[in-house]
C-alpha cells in the first residue's frame, strides 16, 4: 500500500472526516432547479412586458411617420427588457448545467428550449394582462423606469418629429401650457384646424398627446390633441383599469375611431 493512500485513510479516521449526507446533494439539486424555474418564469414575464410595450405603442398615430422613417420602431423597441431577457436565457443555461449531467447538452439547444418556454409563458401572461400590470407597477413604483425605459414616453417626446405629450398646467382660449414628460414647459397653440379627440379632457392636470409642428423652441402648433391614457377600446390608466367610465366614453367614440383594441 502506498504511503499517500494510507496517510489519507489515517487522516480520515483520525480527524473523523465524515461524508456529506445525501440530503445536501438533494437540496443542491432542488436549489438549481428552483433557480432554473424562476429564470424561465421571469423570462416569460420579460416577454410579456416586451409584448405589452410593443402592442401599447400608438402605431395608428405613428403611421404617417412610419411611411418614411424607421425611427419610431427603433424607439419603440424595449431594449432594457430585451437585455434582461437575454441575460435570463444565459442564467437559465448556467443553472441547467448544474443539474446532473445536463452540461452535456449544447448551449444553443438549451437556449432554444428556454426561449420557446419563455415565449409560451410570456404570451400567456400577456393575454392575461400581466405584462401591462408589471409594467405599470414598475412605472409607478420606480420613477427612473418610466422616465428612461418606458418606450411610449420616448416616442412621444420628439417635438421636432411632431410628437409631444405631457400634463396641462395652464389653459387659455387658444393655447395651453404643457409640462412635457422631460419636465420642460411647452406652449401649445391651437387654431381652427386643431382636432381635439373627444376622449381628451382639456383640464388642468390632464395628460395629453399632441401631434403637430414645432414652431420654435418650446413653442408647438397642435394639429391633433389626444388623451394620454384613453384610446378607443383601450385600457384606461387614469381610471385605474378597464373601468366603466373610460369604456363608455370609448364606446361612444367607437364608430369611426378605428383605434387599437387591447
Amino acid at each position: 500500500m502506498s504511503n499517500l493512500s494510507q496517510s489519507v485513510a489515517d487522516k480520515i479516521n483520525k480527524e473523523q472526516i465524515k461524508q456529506k449526507p445525501v440530503w445536501i446533494f438533494v437540496i443542491q439539486k432542488i436549489f438549481w432547479t428552483i433557480l432554473l424555474v424562476l429564470s424561465v418564469v421571469f423570462g416569460g414575464v420579460s416577454v410579456a412586458i416586451i409584448g405589452f410595450l410593443l402592442v401599447e405603442q400608438d402605431w395608428v398615430e405613428l403611421q404617417p411617420e412610419l411611411a418614411n422613417r424607421i425611427t419610431p420602431v427603433l424607439l419603440a423597441i424595449p431594449y432594457l427588457w430585451l437585455i434582461i431577457f437575454t441575460g435570463l436565457i444565459f442564467l437559465s443555461w448556467y443553472y441547467f448545467k448544474h443539474l446532473g449531467r445536463c452540461y452535456r447538452q449544447p448551449m444553443f439547444k438549451v437556449a432554444a428550449w428556454v426561449l420557446s418556454l419563455s415565449l409560451v409563458i410570456g404570451l400567456g401572461l400577456l393575454t392575461l394582462g400581466w405584462g401591462e400590470r408589471v409594467n405599470n407597477y414598475l412605472a409607478s413604483a420606480v420613477p427612473i423606469y418610466s422616465r428612461n425605459f418606458d418606450t411610449r414616453h420616448h416616442v412621444w417626446q420628439r417635438p421636432l418629429a411632431g410628437y409631444i405629450s405631457g400634463q396641462i398646467i395652464q389653459l387659455g382660449s387658444n393655447q395651453l401650457r404643457l409640462a412635457a414628460l422631460d419636465n420642460k414647459i411647452w406652449l401649445v397653440r391651437l387654431n381652427g384646424d386643431t382636432k381635439i379627440d373627444a376622449l381628451a379632457i382639456l383640464d388642468l392636470g390632464g395628460q395629453v398627446r399632441v401631434i403637430g409642428y414645432q414652431l420654435a423652441p418650446f413653442d408647438f402648433l397642435a394639429k391633433e390633441i389626444k388623451d394620454w391614457d384613453c384610446v378607443c377600446g383601450g385600457y384606461c390608466e387614469r381610471c385605474g383599469g378597464h373601468c366603466a367610465g373610460c369604456e363608455i366614453s370609448c364606446q361612444i367614440k367607437e364608430s369611426g375611431c378605428g383605434q387599437r383594441k387591447r
Binding site: L4, S5, V8, K11, I12, I17, K18, Q19, K20, P21, V22, I24, F25, Q28
Partner: peptide
C-alpha cells in the same frame, strides 16, 4: 482524495 471522500454520496 479527501474532497472525493466527503462528496462520495453525491
Amino acid at each position: 482524495f479527501i474532497k472525493a471522500y466527503k462528496n462520495l454520496r453525491g
